[in-house]
Simulated assay, not measured.
Amino acid sequence: MVPNAIVVWNWPETPIVILVILVTALVGRWLLVRMIRRASALAVERAKRRREELGTQTEPLHMARYAARAATMGSLLRSLTNAVIAVLTVLTVLATLGIPLTPLLASAGVGGVALGFGAQSLVKDYLSGIFMIVEDQYGVGDLVDLGEATGTVEDVGLRVTRLRDGSGQVWYIRNGEIVRVGNQSQGWSTATIDIPVDTSESSTRVIEILGQVAAEVGADPEWEKVLLEEPRVVGVQSVEAGRMTIRIVAKTQPNQQFGVQRAILDRGSQALKDAGVKGPRVLPSPPTL
């Protein structure tokens, strides 16, 4: 050892200790990365089981989305693991060489506090994005209501979510600003069809005709993969002046209810017309004074 030297170097103890530190860091990194990959695979499998439990078909597009989500999380966690292990390894080696760490840690602490105050919103966005991805709140292709905007998700990042609304406008929403999520693409959707007829018509006869239409749509191969249950007529929804409304409901795959609504409405209206059922009366407007 050289007297009054800044770096402490004892042969062969110091090189052996440094070698042990490096080997330990590499082994620890290998174990952590292996655990992260395993956790990512389990996350994909858990998301698949959850979708099956909700009664949603597991399509290749959805599985690709889950795989992309797991890959994003795995990449983030691996980067954090590499950074933490690298910092700990460097600090341990410096301590082994006898270099004082107190001034270095004090400077890093002051810089970290300043950076934390300046990047609070950024950290909030990233943390919210991580939890959204882990909890599978929504993904690409889902129809969601995020409060400020409603539309189809086009991209889910760790900081920003991009979605497109019905008018084609693209919205960029910071994940930290999202306080509630309404996802219409998880589980199933409900098609609700209200068909009005004249109040003079027999509700029993109208319900019977519409029941036949619902059964035909349920047996149609075109809607076999869309419908989760056969459409059913729930009965009279409302009775107003000159108008009686009969309601039909159908349980469908997520976001597939609109096509079913159009099909039942079209067939139901034609069946009622063929049976001679009159439509709702248009009452004259009261005279204005």
Rank of each mutant, 00 (worst) to 15 (best):
N10T: 14
V153A: 09
I209K: 10
V153M: 08
W188Y: 15
T192L: 10
P284H: 03
V44L: 09
G279L: 10
L227E: 12
I193Y: 04
Q120K: 15
I246C: 12
I21V: 15
A219F: 02
G268K: 12
Q137H: 08
M63I: 03
S75V: 01
G187A: 10
A250E: 13
S185A: 09
Y66E: 13
K124W: 01
L115D: 04
G259C: 12
T92E: 00
V260S: 11
M244S: 12
L265W: 05
I173P: 08
A108W: 02
I264F: 05
F258I: 13
A83S: 05
L227K: 13
G157I: 14
V181L: 03
Q261F: 03
I21R: 08
T199K: 11
S40N: 07
T72S: 12
T24K: 13
Y172L: 14
W9R: 03
V2M: 06
K278F: 03
V179L: 12
V226T: 15
I18R: 01
L91N: 01
L289S: 09
W30F: 13
T56M: 14
E45R: 09
W188N: 08
I178N: 03
M132P: 00
V90H: 00
S121Y: 01
L80D: 00
Q57V: 12
R78H: 00
G168F: 04
S285I: 02
R281Q: 15
G242Y: 06
A214V: 11
D125T: 05
V282Q: 12
A250N: 13
Q270T: 14
L210T: 09
R162D: 02
G218H: 08
E208A: 15
L26G: 05
R205I: 13
S121I: 04
A250V: 14
S167Q: 13
A214N: 05
